[in-house]
Every structure is written in C-alpha cells, then in structure tokens.
Nucleic acid binder design. Structure first.
Lengths: 242, 242
DNA sequence: CGCGCGGTTGAGCGGGTTCAAATAAAGTGG
DNA sequence: CCACTTTATTTGAACCCGCTCAACCGCGCG
C-alpha cells in the first residue's frame, strides 16, 4: 500500500487472526473502523439456512467497518492469516474534530469497503460463470498483481470456496472455470495460491463482455424499447417549489 | 412518509418525471441529494452488453444520491410517474455547518439508498426464484402495504421487467413465480399494478427459508467445517502496537 | 381497428448445480 | 523426515431450474 489513508499513529489497536477466524461478527457492538495491514479480510453474511455470502474482500490498505454506532452488519473474517489496525469510534470522533476532511474520507472509504459494490451486483446478477471468474481474477490482478517479465503474478489470498461465495456459484464451478482459463492459456496456475495472468487483454475482454452472451441478446433483451434521452439538464425541467 | 428526514423547506428544487425518464444518469456531474416525494425511483446500471441491473428502488421518503463530489455512479430513473425533491451540495454544506448531526444522518441515508444492500446481494446470489420473489414482495408489503381487513394491500409501482432486473432473473420467471404464489393463495393479483398479501406468514417463511433448498443442503454445504467461535472480544486478542 | 406494449403461458434446452470419487496439499505428532 | 489425518481441489456424470424462444392475451391509444 503506497499511501494508506490511515497511519499507524492514528490507530488504537492491532489485531492478528489466522485463516477463517473472525475480527468481528454480525451483531457485535461496534462503531470502529479497521484498516487491513496484511493478508485479506472477508466481509460476509450467513443466511438463515447456513449459507455464506461474501460481500467483499479487503486487501492491505483497505478500510472497513461502518463508522457509525449500532451493531455490526456483517462478519469480518480473515481469508488468510491477516493483520488489521483498528480505530475506535472515540478516536474517530477525535479525528472528526481535528481533521474533518480526512475523517470524512475515512468514513467514505469505510462505507465503500463495507457495502457491496454495484459492479459486484451486476456481475453476480447476470454474468455467466466464465465471465464472473474472469472479472474477479482481472480485478485481483489490478489490485494485487506484480509485474514480472511482462506478465502479472498474483498471490491468491483466499480459497476456491471464498471466491465461489463471493461470485454466487459453487467451488466446483470455480475450479472448472479456472482450469478452463488455464487451458485457454489466459492464466497459468502456480500451485493453489498463486497464478499468473498471461494474456491480460483476453482476460479483460472476457471480464467485460464475456464470450457466451449471444450478440442478439444485447439488442433484443438488453436495450429497452423506451430509451430515455440522456443528459437532461434537470434544472430546466424543474416544476418549481410546491 | 410519516416523518421524512428532509423537509420541504430544506430543498432547493423539485423534479417530476413520467415512467422510465431519468432524474440523472451515470456520469452526470453531481453532488446533490434527492428525496422521493411520490412514485418510485429505480437506481440502476447498464452493462457493456446493454443489460440493465437495478440496484435498488427508492420509495417516498427515501433519500438517494451520493452526497459527495464527482460524477454520479448510477442512473436514477422513474419506475412510475414520480416526483423528487433535490438538495444541492451547496445546501448540503450549509446544513453540515448549521446542523451537522442531521446532515450526517442525511448522508448516511443517501449512502444506504444508493448502495446495494447486503440483503439484496445475499438473495440474488443464492436464493431460488421463488424465494427471491417472496422476499421482494414481502419487503414491498412491509414498506408500502396498507392493512385492509387483516390483509395487506400493496400498490406495485414497477413493472415485471424492473423486478426481474432487480432480482437477477427474467421477467418471464417473475411472472411465472407470481402466478405460482397466487395459486398457493399466498398473494392475490388485483390487476397488473396491485396485489394483496393473503398469508403474510407463509410469504415471510418463503422469503427467509425458501421452500426448495433441501435440508441436507444446510448442514452439508452451508456449515463450514471450521466453524470459528463467535463473540470473540477483540480487545483481549490484541497483539499490541507495532 | 391496427398497433405497440406489458404480461402470461408453454416447450425445449443448457449451464451450473448436486452427488460422488479421486487426487493433491497441508498439518500433526512421532 | 515420515506416516497419518484432515482439508482443499480437481474431475466426472447426471440432473434440473431458470433461460430462450415463441405464441398469445388484454389493454390503451392514435
């Protein structure tokens, strides 16, 4: 992390967890903000039926935690051995008074880390498995990849089941799609927790457009019959105060 | 809306739109906060392929808009003829200075309205169609329903395709599942834009647990082998400052 | 009326799931 | 380091839910 939002000196407390152990659980009293120092934190919810849904992964430098009072809304668990720094809400209030601008940025980031992103929702709603995985791996590459001889080397901090629960599919399908991408020589698997992006452009293309959606799909079903004109200037359309 | 967060006197501007017309689009410059006065606003994103993904619906009293600078992240369109009130970011800054507590609540609410909820993500990831729709209709009932003779009468402000794009399914499936719920006498369809919840408990049960997930599913796949102990007090686990 | 649009219903297909088994990797205790 | 256990991953086969495609209904409207 080049320039983390929060400095060591800001923080109240540091916590380490081995894989699959919680930093906090849904329902815990809280109001603190956390920043990942190393590893990977999994924000998740459990369903009534006991299924797990991963809302987001937080990597070094990422901030999570609601930053408001009230109980936590999600579980935060280590996806691999991880360490986070914690800023309690007293410390946050102190920062809000002394450095309101930075404090707002922190709260902004904490919201962003906590809530599921709209990109994520789009992918899990509609994309076929191949595209979901391509999107996920491409994102990992951008976030965590290290350029080595023109290729992108990525450490995979989480297991297949974590990816599956993030993308709304089974770990078997994750596995199958990964080998499929390997067979296409788009990625190369280097052990279980490491991979190499061999053809980033191809991966990105799969992530954005997919290879499966038929072209007719795009026009027939995607485009809505009533396409509203874009760029309306709302000020000109106002109908005055009530 | 019993006690809306924002009063008429707070707002800068009022806007009305017929069905399917935008209040703003992704990429528009902004920084304003909006509150729905009547109708229903659809927050959505379009994919590269032209598919639409509805992130949330905002009903009267709901607040949306990022409340920060930078371009809008989503489209906001009227799901039916709708009217919203707008608070520009100059007005918001004024409120931040004069009533910081209320202003923070407004920003909170705007985030909540804008970002996809974690419940939503859980449902579209894993739930079967029947459960998705039961969850959606039950939520509508709670939010918009009017008690009439022990039953809950609900006006459906959006069309089938909107629901489909919100739940990650096709409108045909939405239609099929609605008639299925009618055949089960859980709901009654009163024209296209109105329905009645006849057996709220049954609907809620479908929404929470579904009727399809087999029970073995819950133990075999849902529960993870390594169940982390809950309610760890993180303060006791701290490993000190670095 | 003819047309467009929203909604319903039916038939058939296929991608992703479930179930099952084999293999690889990672601990664990000696 | 090995033997042994446990966990994680891969792979195969069969099934099924939701999707695609298509026809039809009903309503509103020029």
């Amino acid at each position: 992390m080049a320039n983390p939002l929060l400095q060591t000196s800001d923080m109240d407390l540091f916590m380490s967890r081995p894989r699959n152990r919680p930093f906090f659980n849904e329902g815990d009293p809280s109001g603190a903000i956390y920043q990942v120092e190393s590893g990977c934190v999994r924000l998740q919810k459990m369903t009534e039926g006991g299924r797990r849904c991963v809302l987001s992964f937080c990597y070094p430098g990422d901030v999570f935690g609601l930053g408001t009072h009230g109980p936590e809304q999600v579980d935060a668990e280590a996806a691999c051995a991880s360490r986070v720094a914690r800023l309690g809400h007293l410390g946050l209030q102190r920062m809000l008074q002394s450095e309101p601008t930075r404090a707002m940025k922190v709260i902004d980031a904490a919201y962003g880390g906590q809530e599921p992103g709209s990109e994520h929702v789009v992918m899990i709603s509609f994309a076929p498995a191949e595209q979901k995985l391509a999107w996920f791996l491409a994102g990992l590459g951008q976030r965590l990849g290290q350029s080595v001889a023109g290729e992108l080397l990525v450490d995979l901090p989480m297991m297949r089941a974590d990816i599956a629960d993030y993308l709304g599919m089974t770990f078997e399908t994750v596995s199958r799609e990964m080998t499929k991408l390997r067979d296409l020589q788009i990625i190369d698997l280097l052990g279980l927790r490491k991979f190499k992006i061999q053809r980033a452009a191809a991966l990105q293309s799969l992530a954005l457009r997919g290879s499966i959606w038929p072209s007719k799909y795009k026009t027939q079903r995607g485009a809505f019959a009533f396409a509203p004109p874009r760029r309306l200037n709302c000020a000109h359309q106002a109908d005055g105060l009530a």
